[in-house]
Amino acid sequence: MKFKRIGLRRFISFAAGVEIAYVFVNLWPQVAQTQEIAEQEIHWLEGHAMQYAIYIVALSGLVFIYTFDRLIARAYEVEDLQAPNVIESALFWADIGFFSNYNMMMGYLLTYTENVDTSLLIFFLAFSLHFITNDWSLRFHHEEAYDHYGRYFLSFSIFIGFVIGQWTDFPEYFIGSVEAFVTGAMTLNVVKHELPSEREGDLEGFLVGVVSASLLFALI
């Protein structure tokens, strides 16, 4: 997708609004639901600090991404002049690895859907919008490497997750724990990397993204 300068600013802000809505309207409520399920099925979680186990998993995801960002930044400072292509390659594959695992989780969760109804249509529309913004953001940062390799890994990973879901039966709280880890990671990623600065952002585009995506995710 190609934009003029004003259109690009508006789309970046719109994408940021979609991501913010996705994290707070869709992901965090699911973390709370998983915490309730874990407390019912794992009785030793009750009565002490581990009763917040799923939230701790989400926190560990946030800490993981922050640590990863700091290590990459430190590597750029030390080796940017010596081997910039190596650092860029490591960053690219780290991004693709993270989002491939994330897409596998989405493919796995599709196996929970048994009936084709309105909620499935809303799921399709909401996550199509979410994946389009992810796709644009990754291509913006990695350009040709994403076109040649990254997009195929991301597309194929959804089918891998679906196949795994057809042949395995993990406990619901285990899948929720993986989702909680991704939730913490996505929270920091969106706030730190996806939200545009005041000069680069467009308020109208951001608000349209937040409102439209919030309505879609709330209806799932």
Results as ranks from 00 to 15, higher is better:
A126G: 12
G61Y: 04
E77S: 10
I20A: 03
R151Q: 10
P196A: 00
L125D: 07
F217C: 10
W93L: 02
I72W: 05
E204I: 00
H43A: 14
E194W: 01
R9Q: 12
E143P: 09
I132H: 08
F181R: 04
T133E: 06
H141M: 13
R139T: 03
L215Y: 14
F131L: 01
T111L: 02
I56A: 14
T111R: 03
A126M: 04
E200L: 00
Y102S: 04
I158P: 04
L59H: 09
V63Q: 09
I132V: 08
M50L: 10
Q35W: 11
G7S: 00
L121Q: 15
G47I: 07
S128N: 11
E19F: 11
V116M: 14
A53W: 12
V25I: 15
F162V: 02
G17S: 04
S89G: 13
L81V: 08
L27Y: 12
K192F: 06
L71A: 13
Y66D: 12
F68V: 01
W28S: 11
V78D: 14
V191A: 11
T183C: 10
L91P: 08
L109M: 15
Q35C: 14
I132G: 03
E179F: 10
V78N: 12
F124M: 09
Y152L: 02
Q166T: 05
G161M: 01
A83G: 13
V116T: 13
F14Q: 01
V57S: 03
E88H: 15
F181H: 02
A16R: 00
H141V: 06
G205Q: 00
L120A: 08
A16G: 03
L121H: 09
E41W: 04
N103F: 04
W167Q: 13
P171Y: 02
L45I: 13
P196M: 06
Q82R: 07
T183A: 08
W28I: 10
E194Q: 04
S100W: 05
S128R: 03
N101A: 06
G205M: 01
T113E: 15
I220P: 11
F123E: 10
F217N: 03
A16C: 02
T168L: 07
D202T: 00
N103C: 09
V182R: 02
G165H: 13
V182L: 10
L8N: 11
L120R: 01
V78F: 07
A90N: 13
I12D: 12
F159M: 04
N26M: 12
E36S: 13
E144M: 06
E19Q: 08
F14Y: 05
L62W: 06
L109R: 11
R74F: 09
E204K: 05
S214W: 08
G201T: 01
F3W: 12
G205L: 09
S214T: 11
K4E: 09
R139F: 03
S212E: 09
G201D: 05
A16T: 00
P196H: 02
Q40H: 03
I6L: 07
L45K: 07
V163E: 10
N101F: 06
P84T: 12
T183E: 08
